[in-house]
Design a protein around this nucleic acid. Structure first.
Lengths: 344, 344
DNA sequence: CTGTTAGCGCTTTCAC
DNA sequence: GTGAAAGCGCTAACAG
């Protein structure tokens, strides 16, 4: 129960604490014999150096922080998974913070990190965040920052993203190829880089196919407390309803399904839906579902790798690099009949 | 860029560092005027106390650790979400560790926490873990430990679980009521508390309904590298195949679906499947899916709340308490016809 | 009410 | 090759 620390090891071995410290860090100026003695006792007593004492002295915490807008979401979960994998391999510890899409929370949490708790930060912006002074402070404090997915051009650093504009283009074109003439875009935020790029892809695809881009066909469903179900119900009702939906996030794709079910609109017969999503239980899903899936795990690994590079000595490479991975369009065949033959 | 620390504040204010420290912690022995001056400057310079210096001195880290077997799983993700919510409200930081169902990793990670990095630990056992010396060491070091979901009776502490045995009973009875006469149980581990309890519920339900419990109807699909698809394909083929499946974990429910699709077995026509699962996209799922869903978010909140109680002064309440929440059986109506009426 | 001092456990000069 | 001493930034015990 009494702590095993350097002093205790030193006492039991008749050595000075400094010697023990050097032996444990395998310093070249310690005799092989002493090293062995020290290591043996350390192992026997299961000595663990006090992490915070060491951090205080060495001015580095062996810890990185990951900040995500939410976690009840397969995409961010998988990214965290990738980050943790790299960090664990490097012997680093991972702090998790959830901003709940809230700017004030994000800023407060970042400011908590200004004074040495973490050696680096990996962050995906909250949908509310527009003002970035907290991130500038972080950089001024010399703490490396890596963005992923929801990035900002205002800050020069590594940004790991997917080809959002291209994906938006392909998703929209896919709907057009399936016969849609009137496609609605469901946005979750007016500010997020991802949402803007996806929309630009949507717009370009419409234009390239001679379809008019109408303002009322972009629907912003971003507010936390908005009654999106009702809004969408209205948009999907009446003669002028769209025949295709492109949802910028998974939750809006889900919502579209629910609204269609409530209204008795058949998918994909009367309405085609495509959405960004990272579902991992494909075989449990309805065959009418088409998704754009981001390589989330790889994004996490890339971001962590980039962060560890930035935390190395040569900080030059962290300057405004851009890493773009490709999303995949996954189409569950909606026409193939299920291989069951009813026995009668 | 130069650090703002207590010494600097003290210098600029012509005070002693200790006075500044006391002013910032709102000590009763500091004059209102001094407090104001200190607070003003601290705010102006955006002073953040060095967390590790403070931890070193106060022998507490304001940090808790969460250790889960995997994270690419809705259940554990939601639990983490609940934990983070409570921790953030208390101003605590959350370290995440993933054991990848690996005993050695779990033990190594726990031992990293022995020396003050975290004030408490919330853990769900890896499926490989049987020997618990690392957890005994943790307790001997005086660090509170809370189990959730996958718990061990060997250690006296708070355990947050769901009513696994009852759920297993209800799930099995549900299949029997739907007409199943020959139900196979798919286990993911021979050791885990959850799996054992669910199986006991399964067994009891069969017995209560006069169905023989046959050993070959319990299939262990636990090995990481096992070719479970092939094993299951064999089990689902031939004259003697079961007519109901009870999967102890989501991945095995998914796998059952895939195998049935590959074999052309209709669900739920020829085979009924029920499984533990925490899917959050209900409307995207096939209507033939019936799940047992655990209140994951609440489990996380309960576990965190219990941990903070244990970390309080009166450690008595952390002695071997058991908190049992109830799972829900969610049946997606497999016979109800979709409200779409084809226009012809 | 405020200052002085000591020390948390570690690493790193600087001595010898 | 090893020891003594200082100090990372903070808080708490002891003065006054």
């Amino acid at each position: 129960m009494d702590q095993v620390n350097l002093k205790r090891l030193a006492r039991e071995l008749n050595l000075a604490p400094s010697t023990v410290s050097r032996a444990l860090s395998d310093s070249y100026e310690i005799s092989a014999e002493t090293k062995e003695r020290v290591l043996a006792l350390a192992q026997q007593l299961n000595y663990q150096p006090h992490p915070y004492a060491r951090s205080l002295r060495k001015r580095s915490s062996n810890t990185i922080a990951v900040m995500v807008p939410e976690i009840a979401n397969n995409f961010f979960t998988l990214v965290i998974n990738g980050i943790e994998e790299i960090a664990q391999a490097k012997g680093y510890h991972v702090l998790i913070y959830i901003t709940h899409e809230n700017h004030a929370k994000e800023a407060a949490l970042v400011r908590h990190l200004l004074n040495g708790r973490a050696d680096g930060v990996i962050l995906s912006l909250s949908s509310q965040t527009q003002e970035l002074s907290h991130l500038h402070e972080l950089r001024e404090a010399g703490i490396p920052l890596i963005f992923f997915d929801r990035v900002s051009e205002e800050i020069d650093t590594v940004k790991v993203t997917t080809n959002d504009q291209e994906s938006g283009y392909l998703a929209t074109r896919h709907l057009i190829e399936k016969g849609c003439k009137d496609i609605i875009y469901l946005a979750s935020s007016a500010h997020l880089s991802t949402d803007q790029l996806r929309w630009q892809g949507y717009k370009a695809a419409l234009e390239d196919n001679g379809i008019e881009v109408r303002e009322e066909r972009t629907l912003l469903l971003g507010e936390e407390n908005g009654s999106h179900f009702e809004t969408l119900k209205k948009a999907f009702s009446g003669k002028t309803r769209p025949d295709g939906v492109f949802a910028s996030v998974e939750s809006l794709a889900t919502l579209s399904y629910e609204v269609c079910e409530a209204l008795g609109i058949h998918i994909p017969g009367e309405m085609k839906v495509i959405g960004f999503s990272n579902l991992r239980t494909a075989s449990l899903l309805k065959p009418s579902l088409t998704t754009i899936t981001q390589p989330a795990f790889e994004i996490g690994k890339e971001a962590a790798t980039a962060l560890f590079q930035s935390m190395g000595k040569n900080k030059a490479i962290s300057k405004d690099r851009r890493i773009v991975l490709s999303s995949t369009l996954i189409e569950r065949d909606s026409t193939a009949s299920f291989p069951y033959k009813k026995k009668d």
